[in-house]
Simulated scan of single mutants.
Amino acid sequence: MMINRGLVFMSDTRTNAGLDNISTFRKMKIWDKPGERMLTVLSAGNLATTQAVVSELEERMKAPEEREPSLLAVPSMYQAARLVATTLKDVIDRHARAGQEANSAFRATILLGGQIQGGPPRLFLIYPEGNFIEAGEDTPYFQIGEMKYGRPILVRAYDPELSFEEAMKLLLVSFDSTIRANLTVGAPFDYHLYEADSLSAGRQGRIELDDPYFRKLSDGWSDSLKQALEQLPPYDLGDAPATGKAPKGKTGTATD
């Protein structure tokens, strides 16, 4: 998420290959050269693919700069996004060349955000095909993985003037709505708060499911929704017949 103060990153840690094979893995990786650059990657999709991408990016950081392009040497965030996109596509293509079938099983999506000296903070959504899009004023945040349950929270409550504390609250409410509806997403949640122009990694942490603040937030959000619903006026059935047919002049166009 992009806010005026900087960038806010949050990821869950649940991976699963079926209901009886659930594991916890960190999906966030941070690299920085204090005073020069900070880059954060978040991933969703096939775990083997995303781990291979991160490993290759780190291997390139160890190689001579003139031989291998590196996230710690590229001159701009756009070039960093191109490097991550190319690496992701190469990893997926390698599975296919090795004779792996069901190529879609190795798909993954990546978020790259950060800042390189001389440019502003930027945020990119990178697709498995190797192309990407950039966040801006019209679309100031990205989600990957399971998004449909938590997205409405962001759509309604996002504001670029949010403080880091308010942004954390918003993202945790969004994640809480998701984990209540989908078993493929779960705590703990990793976060990273990047202050614009600091050019170094910011505050980081992990929030467990039994974290006192998260439990209070989750329960409070549920109670607030119930109270808000109770305060709304009830639907007026009017003279609708008991047969369930819509009265003359009234039609129903949706089901729930």
Rank of each mutant, 00 (worst) to 15 (best):
P121G: 01
A135S: 15
D138T: 13
Y158M: 05
P160G: 01
E165C: 08
L162V: 05
K148G: 03
P121W: 00
Q143H: 13
F164P: 10
E166C: 05
D138F: 10
R122P: 04
Y141Q: 06
F175K: 05
E161N: 14
A157Q: 13
G150I: 06
I153V: 15
L125K: 13
E146K: 08
L162A: 04
L125G: 06
M168W: 10
A157N: 14
E129A: 04
E137L: 03
D159C: 02
V155Y: 08
P121Q: 01
E166R: 08
R151Y: 12
E137P: 01
R122E: 15
G130V: 00
E137R: 08
A157H: 14
D159I: 00
M168K: 14
S177A: 15
L123F: 12
S163V: 11
G145Y: 12
R122M: 08
A135P: 12
F142G: 08
P121I: 00
G145D: 06
D159F: 02
V173Q: 05
L162Y: 04
L172Y: 02
I144H: 09
F124A: 04
N131G: 01
F175V: 02
K169C: 04
A135G: 15
F132G: 04
S174A: 13
E165Y: 09
T139M: 12
L162P: 06
A157W: 09
A157K: 12
P121F: 00
L154V: 02
Q143R: 12
L171T: 03
Q143P: 07
K169T: 10
I153L: 10
L123C: 03
I144A: 07
E165K: 12
E165H: 12
R151D: 10
R122D: 14
M147S: 10
R151L: 13
P140M: 10
Y158N: 03
N131H: 00
L171D: 07
P152W: 07
D138M: 14
D138W: 10
T139H: 12
R151C: 02
D159T: 05
M147Q: 08
P152V: 07
S163K: 09
A157F: 13
